[in-house]
Design a binder for these strands. Structure first.
Lengths: 199, 199
DNA sequence: GTCTATATTCAGATAGAC
DNA sequence: GTCTATCTGAATATAGAC
């Protein structure tokens, strides 16, 4: 079952919902397609299963943001965590991205409630830092939008990154450069100290 | 014909390639579906027509980056141009994003040649600024990846932005906040002067 | 050039044997 | 529970009248 979900995640990421056929999934999972229907009912329900598997990931990373930590440390850790997920779970990122692209018909509740609540909570932490004079007065919610955008682009639009860089795959060097660039933009953008050498 | 392409762009953006039916396009365009096939041949060829319409947009914005301009001014103008396209052509952005998400089978050449060449050319301009001590030594190519990510997220993942902000549509206020945040991150991140009030 | 009607293909779902 | 074979519906594409 977990195996089927993993195969489905990859296929939905690569081919989209309509582009993924139950036949293709069955072949990739190594069993007849009737079994998929036996386990999950409809293709729609299987897709929902894949999505739900992903949502927890998105909320978890934000744990790095806590009031006691110095902002530079917390933001650096957050960026690192997001980028690690981008690297280890690129298919999850792509499925989520495709769902958003098409208006998120399955994620309306998640976005408007769970995610919104969590962002507002963490934005309050950032406003606390600003009020204490620990960082520049940046809009915390837009800051989140932009950190998500920058980190996820290395999964979602990986093919563009590879083509422009002229490499066959994104390895340690590329992710190190990405992390350095994003961390620099965010820390300096927030008026925080950032130093070249610091990993 | 241009009308059909506009309708198709919107439908491909909202429903994806497989999710878009010729019947649906015909209805939206107000003519029988046989005509679509008469004009464009196959659905595939129609999709290629939509994509090609979009590519020029992407390359054009980079004209803002020229060696003579001060970096802060050029980067501010570039961000503004990208964000303006995000706002006026959200469907184009989404079609392009979906194509990248699914591995860009139709854009391989464009990405590896036209786009890559243009990015390398403009990266050289930025390195010139760095060498002249006009800005901090940031990786120019990753800088582009991240500017694209930040500006396009307001089209591609608009539904997420709206849900988290709790608004029904992205208007002047939201785009102003986006532009301010992105410009701040980029300029300060590049060690350039940025001032709150400056639009 | 434009449309109606239809052929063809293919994917999702299920019946029913084992 | 697992599989083969099949049904059903839908979407692309085209034939052929006007």
């Amino acid at each position: 079952m977990a195996h089927i979900l993993a195969v489905a995640e990859q296929s939905f990421a690569e081919a989209g919902f309509s582009g993924t056929t139950m036949e293709r999934l069955a072949q990739a999972a190594g069993l007849p397609k009737a079994n998929l229907h036996y386990y999950f009912g409809t293709k729609e329900q299987l897709y929902r299963g894949v999505l739900e598997n992903i949502l927890a990931l998105w909320l978890d990373d934000m744990n790095a943001i806590t009031p006691e930590r110095p902002p530079a440390e917390a933001l650096t850790a957050y960026i690192r965590a997001k980028l690690a997920h981008t690297r280890t779970r690129p298919h999850a990122s792509k499925v989520f991205a495709a769902e958003l692209l098409h208006g998120a018909p399955h994620l309306r509740r998640f976005l408007s409630f769970e995610l919104r609540r969590r962002v507002i909570e963490k934005a309050r932490v950032i406003r606390g830092w600003i009020d204490r004079g620990l960082m520049a007065p940046i809009d915390p919610i837009h800051l989140f939008f932009n950190i998500w955008a920058m980190t996820q682009t290395y999964a979602d639009f990986e093919v563009q990154v590879r083509a422009v860089l002229g490499v066959n795959r994104l390895g340690d060097a590329e992710f190190a450069a990405a992390e350095k660039t994003i961390t620099r933009l965010v820390l300096k953008g927030c008026g925080l100290h950032w130093q070249e050498g610091k990993p």
